[in-house]
């Protein structure tokens, strides 16, 4: 809660950086390819994931976003990924290898693997949003046959997430203004806070929906500029998909080891 306002502004800014460059339409497919490759890496081979990190590093630098920013933002996902994998070291205790007297369990390796793939996946999604923007992502999805019901739902969900955060920020400010520095509140009060938040958000949602209706909304989100697939888009798509698939299939660690030995 303490940094909710900062997080809100940061989240909003990721999307406003959305491009519409002629490589944007390809980014959705490149990201999908990347996610499939990252998730297909066996759980006990995290070293193979290291090579796949080349994609977010290279693309964020080429697109002028900067990998540092993407990396820092990707840390938001860390608590969730941490929670998903934290029990692995306790469940899977079989020894994978030893470093001196310290034995490293398979659970530890899978835990690290989950952390890395979580970070890399989130980084690729952040890059997608930053280079393409939500609207163009949904436009691309629709253009390639994704039902408009689904894309409209996604677009509205995206809008309503901001709405809920917006309301949370207003309520947080109101509470702090009369809180006299108090930081800890009982669970009951948090329950009331969440309840009020949902009621207020749904009221705002009704007004937003009315505003959309008043301007002729018929259930389908109108799309503006049509996404143009230029030769550069195709080159970008083929090149990056090839690189990602090579990074996934070729065991660069073994190759380097072979050349060194």
């Amino acid at each position: 809660m303490a940094d909710i306002e900062k997080t809100y502004l940061k989240l909003a800014r990721i999307n406003t950086g959305g491009g519409c460059s002629n490589t944007s339409p390809a980014m959705l497919f490149i990201t999908l390819t990347y996610l499939i490759c990252v998730l297909s890496v066996p759980l006990y081979q995290p070293q193979k994931l290291i090579w796949l990190a080349a994609y977010p590093v290279a693309v964020s630098e080429i697109e002028g976003i900067g990998y540092g920013k993407i990396f820092i933002k990707s840390l938001w996902i860390l608590p969730l990924v941490f929670f998903i994998g934290i029990f692995n070291p306790f469940i899977d205790t079989a020894v994978a290898f030893r470093i001196g007297n310290i034995s490293v369990s398979q659970g530890c390796i899978s835990f690290i693997s989950i952390l890395i793939r979580g970070l890399l996946s989130f980084q690729s999604v952040l890059i997608l949003v930053a280079t393409t923007g939500f609207i163009d992502i949904f436009n691309t999805m629709r253009k390639f046959g994704c039902p408009s019901v689904l894309t409209t739902q996604l677009l509205l969900s995206y809008r309503y997430i901001y709405l809920i955060i917006d309301q949370a920020v207003i309520m947080k400010r109101a509470r702090e203004a009369r809180g006299y520095g108090r930081k800890n509140y009982p669970l009951k009060m948090w329950g009331q806070f969440v309840g009020q938040l949902l009621i207020r958000s749904s009221q705002r949602a009704v007004w937003i929906h009315r505003a959309m209706d008043a301007r002729g909304f018929d259930g389908t989100m109108p799309t503006g500029h049509s996404l143009t697939w230029t030769s550069r888009t195709w080159v970008w798509l083929v090149a990056w998909c090839s690189v990602i698939i090579c990074l996934r299939l070729i065991d660069f660690s073994s190759l380097i080891k072979h050349f060194v030995s």
């Binding site: 609207i135 959309m212 799309t223």
Partner: peptide, 17 residues
């Protein structure tokens, strides 16, 4: 309540579109 698109342009274009 009336500004729900990512940019001002998209918001103003919502009705005509």
């Amino acid at each position: 309540d009336m500004l729900f698109m990512p940019t001002v342009y998209d918001d103003v274009a919502f009705g005509p579109r």
